[in-house]
Design a protein around this nucleic acid. Sequence first.
DNA 1: ACTGAATAGGAATTCAAC
DNA 2: GTTGAATTCCTATTCAGT
Lengths: 85, 85
Amino acid sequence: MKSERHAMILEIIERSDVETQEDLARLLKERGIGVTQATVSRDIKELRLIKVLTDTGAYKYATVDKAEAGLKDRLIRIFSDSVMA
Amino acid sequence: MKSERHAMILEIIERSDVETQEDLARLLKERGIGVTQATVSRDIKELRLIKVLTDTGAYKYATVDKAEAGLKDRLIRIFSDSVMA
DNA sequence: ACTGAATAGGAATTCAAC
DNA sequence: GTTGAATTCCTATTCAGT
């Protein structure tokens, strides 16, 4: 079912850094859900997931609110560094 | 200069819905800054812009915080609708 | 360090099937 | 309405040049 898959996708991207839709399809398959990149693309659209840069320079899929949290963390770190310096 | 271009990109994507990097390159050209998609791609990476879904189902570039604001608006609207119904 | 042209790589859509 | 295969479209990177 689609809603189950959606839930699993959210779990997966929270737990690990997923760089591509192919990766996500592979991770779903490991969990017993066989779908192709085309379906993953549609799921990502429906879940309104976004692709963000991690601090290591790699891309990963995330929810908007998680991305916002990451942004806040980064700003705090930058601010702290500038104060300390 | 690159920083000028970055500033203009932020202005452009706030004012209008930019769907692709080619579009953005074109809009920059209209404003007197000629760059190719390759450079726009690098700019987007440096600015950490993301591609989000609009309510019409189209994609557009945005900053993370603006995307978060949009998310909040949408949730409020959905909530209001469900209360009214 | 910055950029463009060309290319490779990744994502969204089409088209058909169910 | 949902999905996969194939395709088109878009984006990131490479490689060269400045």
